[in-house]
């Protein structure tokens, strides 16, 4: 039953994802991609559990390594996306501090 429930969640999320992204203009494709990439770093949650749940030395070490990589992905991804997005300015918006 649990598996069916999870599959249900998966299906709905995929459809939601399609609906959300279909409307993104071409101008924002790169930030969208790197922003989505940062979200895929959600694996960090799984990594934290693996590293912290005390399931033995292997799990702890692999988990810690996973935490490292996933954190690079999350922190780097969000920051670089923010850096890119803050460059997109409308015409005549002076200094662009408003967005």
């Amino acid at each position: 039953m649990e598996a069916v429930l999870l599959a249900f969640i998966l299906t709905l999320s995929v459809f939601l994802g399609f609906e959300l992204i279909a409307k993104v203009p071409a101008t924002l494709h790169t930030p969208l991609m790197s922003g989505a990439n940062a979200i895929s770093g959600i694996t960090v949650v799984g990594a934290i559990i693996a590293a912290g749940a005390d399931l033995g030395p292997w799990s702890t070490w692999l988990g810690a390594l996973a935490v490292f990589f996933a954190t690079v992905n999350v922190v780097g991804g969000y920051m670089v996306t923010d850096r890119m997005l803050s460059m997109f300015k409308k015409k005549d918006s002076t200094s662009g501090g408003d967005s």
């Binding site: 649990e2 598996a3 999870l6 969640i9 998966l10 999320s13 995929v14 459809f15 939601l16 994802g17 399609f18 959300l20 992204i21 279909a22 969208l32 991609m33 989505a36 990439n37 979200i39 895929s40 770093g41 959600i42 694996t43 949650v45 799984g46 559990i49 693996a50």
Partner: peptide
């Protein structure tokens, strides 16, 4: 990330992972 969510029974991994999966496919 989505598959890892199934592996450890974690809903937020499944939701976020599949959103990204769909975005990438589009």
């Amino acid at each position: 990330a989505c598959a890892a969510g199934f592996a450890i029974n974690n809903t937020i991994l499944i939701v976020a992972g599949s959103l990204v999966g769909a975005a990438g496919l589009i």
